[in-house]
Lab assay of single mutants.
Amino acid sequence: MEVRTIKVFTTVDNINLHTQVVDMSMTYGQQFGPTYLDGADVTKIKPHNSHEGKTFYVLPNDDTLRVEAFEYYHTTDPSFLGRYMSALNHTKKWKYPQVNGLTSIKWADNNCYLATALLTLQQIELKFNPPALQDAYYRARAGEAANFCALILAYCNKTVGELGDVRETMSYLFQHANLDSCKRVLNVVCKTCGQQQTTLKGVEAVMYMGTLSYEQFKKGVQIPCTCGKQATKYLVQQESPFVMMSAPPAQYELKHGTFTCASEYTGNYQCGHYKHITSKETLYCIDGALLTKSSEYKGPITDVFYKENSYTTTIK
């Protein structure tokens, strides 16, 4: 009895394709271990004539594949690729409408935090270190965002349907971005203890939790000093293409032309909904596939993004 075979390709990165001759009487799992086709788990399936010449994702289970996976995804987590594939199996079914010149995501599976993050990423200057993220990001900007969303979920250790947080998501993504040249110098002034300067680099240099107003941050924000008295913390120097200011959701007025974009969060910790506000020729609110415009805006804002380049204080 002759062994019926077909020729397929296996890959971990969709760049390096490895030619395989597979036995049609055995499952993919018996031949390769966990195997995925377009995100779908085909591990328990036997090869079919229609699979001839198709590319299958496999887990990096030998040295060659491990090197290829690390170079593309910059992670050695053995569960990463499987999590990416199972997320992709959902995100490829989502709709990605162009809204006001940006790629958004039609609401499904509690994905409003991903839509808000995706919209924000198209408006701030950011370059990702893992080629996987950078490639998928370019495709997302062009309207094909399924891979990018699935990668975000995998890097953030999230599953489809789980509630997510924009600030946490951005923080994970910033860790995989090139923020080497970003720098922030802060000064804390206390009447009792004097003053202390701190220099922050990388992710810490672009994120701040405690106030939404970048102007206020430049002037000074009140913080408790270690001595128990009130101290003032203010920005001395900022070198970065953008800054992200966050605070627990509270009524906040966004003035046209003073910011790049913002995240609105309605609801409580267990259950809520994100919308995205962007400042173009007027203010726009993007909620999944829905767009509304207004000249002014007041609502429960939790993150505001500002364009920056270089700032030095005039406070002496």
Rank of each mutant, 00 (worst) to 15 (best):
T278N: 06
T260N: 06
S246D: 00
I105H: 05
C112I: 04
T5P: 13
L186S: 10
T91W: 03
M244C: 06
G299M: 02
S213D: 13
S79W: 08
G82N: 09
F80C: 04
K191Q: 13
F9H: 15
M24I: 14
R141D: 04
M207F: 06
H273I: 01
D13R: 06
G101I: 01
F148A: 01
T64I: 14
L179G: 01
M26A: 14
F70P: 05
Q237I: 10
G272M: 02
I105T: 04
T11E: 04
G82V: 14
M170G: 01
N187W: 08
E144H: 11
F242G: 04
P300R: 14
V160S: 03
T75L: 07
Y297A: 00
D77F: 04
G161L: 03
Y28F: 15
A40P: 08
I301S: 00
F242Q: 00
K280P: 01
Y274L: 00
G228A: 03
G210L: 00
D13F: 05
G29L: 09
K127P: 12
T75R: 09
C227W: 01
M85C: 08
T312R: 15
P34H: 11
F174T: 03
G82S: 14
W94C: 03
T35S: 12
P241R: 06
L283M: 12
E162P: 01
V58F: 06
N89W: 08
F80D: 04
K191V: 15
T198C: 14
P60N: 06
K7P: 12
C261H: 00
L126C: 09
V21G: 10
G272W: 00
T91F: 02
G39I: 07
K92R: 15
Y284F: 12
E253C: 08
M170L: 11
N147R: 10
F32H: 15
Y137Q: 08
F148I: 08
I301Y: 00
E264N: 03
K93P: 04
I286W: 00
M244R: 05
D23N: 10
Y84M: 03
N14T: 08
T10S: 09
T282V: 12
L163F: 14
E239Q: 12
C112G: 00
T260D: 07
T313Q: 15
T278Y: 13
S181P: 07
Y252N: 03
S171R: 14
F56V: 09
T76V: 13
G29F: 13
K275F: 00
Q216C: 09
Y137P: 02
L118D: 04
D109F: 02
A154Y: 00
T169E: 01
D303V: 02
L88G: 01
G29Y: 11
F70Y: 11
K183G: 04
Q195W: 08
L37Y: 12
S294A: 12
V221I: 15
E52H: 13
V185Q: 05
G257M: 07
A115Q: 10
T258S: 12
Q134F: 06
K183N: 07
S240A: 06
G272Y: 04
S246C: 09
A132Y: 04
H18V: 08
T43G: 14
E215T: 09
P131G: 06
D62S: 15
G299E: 03
Y84L: 06
I152S: 02
F217C: 06
F217M: 11
N129R: 14
Y208H: 15
Q251Y: 09
I124E: 04
S240T: 05
E52I: 12
Y28Q: 03
M207L: 07
T116Y: 05
T91K: 01
N16A: 08
E308M: 12
L153D: 05
S263T: 11
A140T: 10
H18N: 09
V58Y: 06
D109I: 03
M207P: 04
R141G: 07
K293S: 14
G194D: 01
E2M: 11
T64C: 15
R184V: 02
H48A: 14
K92N: 09
Q195R: 12
Y73V: 02
K44N: 13
K255D: 09
E281Q: 06
L153E: 02
Q195M: 14
N268C: 09
K298H: 08
T199I: 11
Q270N: 15
A289H: 15
V304N: 00
D287S: 03
S181A: 15
T19N: 10
G202E: 05
G143I: 03
L65A: 10
V3Y: 13
T10M: 07
K316R: 15
P60A: 12
Y208V: 15
Q222G: 08
E215D: 12
L121K: 04
K106C: 09
A87I: 07
R184A: 14
H273V: 00
Q230M: 13
L126R: 04
E162N: 00
I301W: 00
K307H: 12
T55G: 06
N157D: 10
D23M: 13
F242C: 02
